[in-house]
Nucleic acid binder design. Structure first.
Lengths: 161, 161
DNA sequence: GGTAAATAGATATGACGCATAACAATAATT
DNA sequence: AATTATTGTTATGCGTCATATCTATTTACC
C-alpha cells in the first residue's frame, strides 16, 4: 500500500529532490495521485475487513448474481488463479456462496448472501464518502474531463495484443 | 503487474459482468487506467532491466546529484528500508555510487555514473514514446485538464495527518 | 561537557498483488 | 471416439508495500 507519511514537517524544512523530469509524464502523476486514492480507500475499507480487490469482487457479485469465476476474473482484469483466494475469503466470511451449475459441472455461479449484500451497502456508502472527500477540490467540469481522459487511456489498449 | 490479457476474443463472445456501480467511482477508473499505463511501462522498461521504482530512483538521482537516501525516499514517497534494496541494485549495476559525506558519517550522497546517465537518457526517451502512445487519443485540452485534476487529488492529501 | 533524543541507513519479516506453470474434471469440437 | 478448450485449482516466485528493530552518528538540551 503506498505510503502516506504521517509525520508532516513544514515544507520549508524539507530539502526536496527535483522531480521535474518525472512530472513531465502523465503516467507518473497518475501513479502519485492513485497512491493517494489507494491509501485512503484502504483506510476506508479496513473497518469492513475488506481490501480493494475483495471489495471489487463483492460489488461485482452482488450486482451480477450467477456470475462465473472466469467472468469475474475477466471483469476485474486479473488472472483466474488469483481470484480463487479472493473468492475463498469472501466465502469463508459467508458473504457469498459458490452455487453449482447443473448444466456445467466445472463452473460455479457466484451469489451474494444477505450478509454480503448488507456489507455491500455499507461499504459502497463509505467508498462514496471517501470519493467525495478525494474529489472535493475538483469542480464538475474537471471531473468530467478526467473521466473522459481515463476512459480513453483504458480503451486505447483494450484491443492491444 | 496488472494483467493485460493477451488473448483477445471478440467482445461479442464475452459475457460481461456489469460494473456500473464501480464505474461510478473515479478511483476505480483511475485504477483501471493506471493498470494500462503500468503494464505498458513495465514492458517499456524491461529491455533496460529497469522497473518502475528503479527507473524513478535513477531519474531522481541523475537529476539531483548528491541526494541523500532519506531525501530520495521522501521524493518517491516510500519507506526508507524499501529504498535500500533499490539502491543496492542500481549500485550493483554500477549505474550509481554511494559517496561518503565528510560532514555526516551516517549519510551517503548518491551520484549517477556515466553508465547511469546514459541509461537515463535511453530510458527517458523510451518512456516518452510509451507515454505518447498511451495518450495518443487525448487531445491537448483533455491532457491539461487531467493533469490539473491529478494535481488537485495529490495535493489535497499532502497535508493530511 | 554529558546525556538524551533524533536521524541515516540497514536487516528482517510479513502481507498483498501480480505473474506463470501445471493439473484434473468437464464440456465442446472435430 | 479422440482431441481441444474451458473452468477452477494448487503451487510458486517476484515485486511493492508496511512495520519492528538495530547500529552508528549527529543534534538538542541541560
Amino acid at each position: 500500500m503506498p505510503n502516506q507519511k504521517h509525520k508532516q514537517m513544514p515544507q520549508s524544512d524539507v530539502i526536496h529532490a527535483g522531480d521535474a523530469t518525472l512530472r513531465n509524464f502523465v503516467g507518473y502523476r497518475m501513479k502519485r495521485a492513485f497512491n493517494v486514492v489507494q491509501a485512503d480507500l484502504t483506510k476506508t475499507l479496513k473497518p469492513f475487513d475488506l481490501r480493494m480487490l475483495t471489495y471489487t469482487a463483492l460489488v461485482l457479485i452482488v450486482d451480477n448474481p450467477g456470475l462465473r469465476q472466469s467472468q469475474l476474473a475477466d471483469a476485474m482484469d486479473i488472472e483466474r488463479p488469483n481470484l480463487v483466494v479472493l473468492i475463498d475469503e469472501l466465502e469463508r466470511r459467508e458473504l457469498i456462496v459458490r452455487d453449482r451449475v447443473p448444466t456445467d459441472r466445472r463452473a460455479y455461479a457466484l451469489r451474494a448472501t444477505l450478509a454480503g449484500r448488507q456489507l455491500y451497502e455499507k461499504a459502497v456508502a463509505a467508498v462514496t464518502l471517501h470519493e467525495n472527500a478525494i474529489l472535493a477540490d475538483l469542480p464538475q467540469d474537471l471531473r468530467t474531463a478526467m473521466i473522459e481522459a481515463l476512459k480513453r487511456i483504458e480503451k486505447a489498449h483494450r484491443g492491444r495484443s
